[in-house]
Computed example of a mutant assay.
Amino acid sequence: MDSNFRIQNRVADPHNSVVRGRMLGQYVMNGGEGPNSYAQNSSYQVFFNDKVTNDFNTLFSSLPPERLYYASGVPGSFHGRLLPKASLHFAYSSCTFNWLSEVPKELADDTSPTWNRAKIHSFGARKEVLEAYSNQYAEDVEAFLDSRAEELVGGGLMALIVPAVPAFWNPNTAYTTLTEFDILGSCLMDLAEKGRFSKAKVDLFNLPLHYTVPQEFKAILERSDDYTLERMEI
């Protein structure tokens, strides 16, 4: 299940509105590729972001040669700043919010209730483990929103496709990605039982992934003073 969010930067930008107004007064822009089309009268710079280990050469070689935009690669974690202040008009992220910046540190403490023994994820784990994942997720999403708020122009838009599970999801009757994590964890424990590696290694291995519920993600968005939620689809 994915949830779609369309949110807008609250800050007004009157200068940008004036420039846009003058441009629209000069060109009656239409679709297609004619002399008065957006394609012939607009320039777009698209920034592709991924981790520094991503092969950007493969990305660039796959782009259409006759594209109607300029392309650049921006390496780095999207949980932090990537671009100059007020340099972005539209931000888009698809199916990446399930990745955490790191595994919650509490999970490495074998004296803590968050010790995730014999599991590799929060699925089916004790309440304290789920809370640790949820807190890390909220921290990461807030860091993302704060960074994009600095980079977006006033009134800029952001569209997000967020991997999620329904709040009413029943793991006993419905199959999701979380079910796969549980199966993978069981396989690792079986291998540990056979001596392929120690059980301690499985206990210390946790996936940096969190699948939110729409209500949780919406609550994080609404805590931010930098955005208004324009539209949400589930």
Rank of each mutant, 00 (worst) to 15 (best):
F90D: 02
L178K: 03
Y137I: 05
L88G: 01
V165A: 04
E151Q: 12
F168H: 04
L160F: 12
L100K: 05
Y137G: 05
Y137W: 14
S93H: 03
V129Y: 06
Q136M: 11
A164L: 12
T176P: 01
R148P: 01
L160S: 05
S112T: 08
E151D: 14
A132P: 07
I161E: 06
F168R: 01
F123H: 12
T111A: 15
T114I: 04
A167I: 01
G155S: 13
N135Y: 07
W115L: 08
T179G: 05
A138G: 09
N170I: 00
S101T: 13
N170S: 15
N170R: 03
E139D: 09
F168D: 04
E180P: 03
L100I: 08
F90C: 03
F144Q: 03
Q136V: 11
K127E: 15
A132E: 05
S147Y: 07
E180D: 14
T96A: 15
S134F: 05
K119Y: 02
W169G: 01
T179E: 07
G156L: 03
S101V: 08
V165D: 06
A108Q: 12
F123Q: 11
P171R: 05
F168N: 04
W169V: 02
F123P: 03
A143T: 09
T177E: 04
G154L: 11
A138W: 03
E128S: 14
G155K: 10
Y92N: 10
T176M: 03
R117D: 10
E131Y: 08
G156Y: 02
E150F: 11
M158Y: 01
V153F: 11
Y92W: 13
F90E: 00
E151I: 04
D110N: 13
A118V: 00
D110H: 08
A132K: 07
E180F: 13
R117L: 12
L130I: 11
V103P: 00
E150Q: 14
V153K: 11
M158D: 02
T179Q: 07
E139I: 08
E151F: 02
I161C: 15
L178C: 14
G124I: 13
R126M: 06
A159N: 10
A174M: 04
E106Q: 14
S147I: 06
G154F: 08
E102P: 02
E106I: 04
A108C: 05
G154H: 08
I120L: 10
C95V: 13
H89E: 09
S122K: 02
N172D: 07
Y137L: 07
D110F: 09
S122Y: 14
H121T: 15
F144P: 00
A108L: 10
L130W: 07
L160N: 04
W169H: 09
L160K: 03
T96Q: 13
P171E: 10
R117T: 12
E142W: 00
H121K: 06
T177F: 15
N135I: 06
F181T: 00
T176C: 01
N98K: 12
Y92H: 15
H89Y: 00
V129K: 01
S122R: 07
